[in-house]
Computed example of a mutant assay.
Amino acid sequence: MARRYFVSGRVQGVGFRYWTVGRAKQLGLVGWVRNRRDGRVEVLAYGETGSLDSLEKELQSGPAGAQVTAVDAAPVNPDEAALAAEATRFDQTPTL
């Protein structure tokens, strides 16, 4: 199963992407995380439902220094879900 999240608040410049990569790897997820020019962080993760639920819960607080105001789920189109399913790790990608 694939899920996309948009995390808002003070989430850039606080190690949020690095922290997300570590948490996702610990949970056995694959996918990516990136900063967005609008100040949010975007996460696309693929894995078991329980692990995705855990990541979503942890995104709501983030690393020390972050101040998360919202974690919004967004649809994942079938092509993105297929690509995420083929991923072999969780990475940071360039800002969009």
Rank of each mutant, 00 (worst) to 15 (best):
M1S: 13
M1K: 10
A2D: 02
A2L: 01
R3Q: 14
R3I: 04
R4G: 03
Y5E: 08
Y5A: 14
V7F: 09
S8T: 07
S8Y: 14
G9K: 01
R10C: 00
R10F: 06
R10Y: 06
V11H: 01
V11N: 06
G13C: 06
G13E: 11
V14Y: 11
V14K: 05
V14Q: 04
F16I: 05
F16V: 05
F16N: 02
F16M: 00
R17E: 06
R17Y: 00
R17L: 02
R17C: 02
V21M: 13
R23E: 15
R23C: 12
R23L: 13
A24F: 09
K25V: 12
Q26C: 14
G28Y: 05
L29H: 04
L29D: 00
V30Y: 01
V30D: 00
V30L: 01
G31H: 02
G31T: 02
V33M: 03
V33Y: 04
V33P: 01
V33C: 03
R34V: 11
N35G: 04
D38R: 01
D38G: 00
G39N: 03
G39C: 07
E42R: 09
V43E: 05
V43Q: 05
V43C: 04
L44Y: 11
A45E: 00
A45I: 03
A45P: 01
Y46W: 15
Y46R: 07
Y46D: 05
G47P: 00
E48Q: 15
G50K: 09
G50Q: 12
S51R: 15
S51N: 10
S51V: 05
D53I: 05
D53M: 07
D53T: 11
D53A: 12
S54A: 13
S54R: 15
S54N: 13
L55W: 11
L55R: 06
L55Y: 00
L55F: 06
K57Y: 11
E58Q: 15
L59S: 02
L59W: 05
Q60Y: 02
S61P: 00
S61I: 09
S61A: 10
S61R: 08
G62W: 04
G62N: 04
P63G: 13
A64S: 14
G65Q: 01
G65W: 04
G65M: 05
G65K: 10
A66D: 08
A66V: 03
V68T: 03
T69P: 03
T69M: 09
V71S: 09
D72T: 11
A73D: 10
A73P: 12
A73W: 12
P75Y: 00
P75D: 14
P75C: 08
V76H: 08
V76E: 08
V76I: 03
N77V: 10
P78H: 15
D79P: 07
E80H: 14
E80F: 02
E80P: 08
E80Y: 01
A82K: 15
A82H: 14
A82W: 04
L83H: 13
L83I: 06
A84D: 01
A84V: 01
A84K: 00
A85Y: 00
E86P: 01
E86D: 10
T88A: 10
T88G: 13
R89E: 15
R89H: 15
R89K: 14
F90N: 06
F90S: 05
D91C: 09
Q92W: 01
Q92A: 04
T93V: 14
P94G: 08
